[in-house]
C-alpha cells in the first residue's frame, strides 16, 4: 500500500509505538497515509483503538513474522 511516510517503531515497548505514531501524525497533512512497523505485541490492539478515538482511519494492518504493520490515514 502507498504511504507518505514510514515510521520504524520496531523494538520499542509500549507506550512508545503509539506515542511516536501520534507525533508523526501531527506533522502530516489530511489524507496522508502513515505506515508503521512495530514489534510490541500490545500495539496490535492499541493502535486500532487509538486510531478510532483520534478519528484517523486505520486502513489496514498485517503481521509479517514478528513485525506488526499498520497503515493509518490522517483525518
Amino acid at each position: 500500500m502507498e504511504s507518505q511516510k514510514v515510521l520504524d517503531a520496531k523494538g520499542l515497548a509500549c507506550p512508545m509505538p503509539v506515542v511516536k505514531t501520534k507525533k508523526e501524525m501531527d506533522t502530516l497533512s489530511t489524507g496522508d497515509i502513515l505506515e508503521i512497523h512495530a514489534t510490541d505485541s500490545g500495539a496490535e490492539s492499541d493502535m486500532a483503538a487509538w486510531a478510532k478515538t483520534s478519528g484517523h482511519e486505520l486502513l489496514h494492518q498485517e503481521k509479517e513474522g514478528d513485525i506488526l504493520k499498520f497503515w493509518i490515514k490522517k483525518k
Partner: peptide, 8 residues
C-alpha cells in the same frame, strides 16, 4: 479505565 493513548 482510561486508555493511555487517550492521554497523549
Amino acid at each position: 479505565n482510561k486508555p493511555y493513548f487517550e492521554m497523549l
